[in-house]
């Protein structure tokens, strides 16, 4: 949902040509991108806080025993979730900057995981090792889907540092590509 919002916010700047006018008025392209990235960051922080509050409330309702030590037990998941959202929004922003058309960008964003899955399925066995490094996977691995918990009664209950590192690299790359693209474009 947030991804679609970001895509519309960036592609509208292209289709209404307000980006062009803003640059004419004296905004540098970097300033413009920074303003969009800052918005992404804000959205991510708000989402993370939201999850935190929901966690607190549901925890309060369902806990068998109220103790501060349980309240902050799985705290690292909150910033990890924030990073997950921010990386995803950076990806959405990059797609928007590159494609510039809202419809196509939203479609591509929604099917990104599917497309990645298809690529992964067709990957030769020798390249098996790079699978966890694919962008969508990297984003998902930050906070793994807890659905398996109910199947296997077991789950990764910590945030792995490796997955944080991979996501950070992708996050940086997405925003860097956006910048490169915006810098070189005639708008």
């Amino acid at each position: 949902m947030l991804g679609v919002l970001v895509v519309i916010s960036i592609t509208n700047e292209y289709s209404y040509r307000t980006l062009r006018q803003n640059v004419i008025d004296g905004v540098s392209r970097l300033d413009f991108l920074i303003s969009k990235i800052t918005t992404n960051l804000g959205l991510s922080i708000v989402s993370a806080l939201f999850i935190f509050v929901i966690g607190l409330v549901t925890g309060l309702i369902y806990t068998p025993e109220l103790d501060w030590k349980y309240v902050f037990q799985s705290m690292p998941f909150v910033p990890a979730y924030g990073l997950q959202i921010f990386t995803y929004l950076s990806f959405a922003l990059m797609l928007g900057v590159i494609i510039q058309r809202s419809g196509l960008t939203i479609l591509l964003l929604l099917f990104a995981s599917t497309i990645e899955l298809i690529i992964k399925l067709n990957l030769p066995d020798s390249l098996e090792v790079i699978k966890p490094y694919f962008p969508m996977d990297a984003i998902d691995n930050l906070v793994p889907n807890p659905f398996l918990k109910y199947v296997f009664q077991e789950i990764q209950d910590y945030v792995s540092l490796a997955s944080v590192a991979i996501a950070l690299v992708w996050m940086f790359l997405f925003n860097f590509f956006s910048y490169r693209r915006l810098k070189a474009a005639d708008i």
Partner: peptide
């Protein structure tokens, strides 16, 4: 006005090389 990237050559406003700040002094 900095929206189209030039292929080659140069231009200067008020004797200075183009900067983003300069465009704030120009109405276009």
């Amino acid at each position: 006005m900095g929206v189209v990237n030039k292929t080659s050559g140069s231009f200067s406003w008020f004797g200075e090389l183009p900067k983003d700040e300069i465009r704030k002094k120009i109405g276009a």
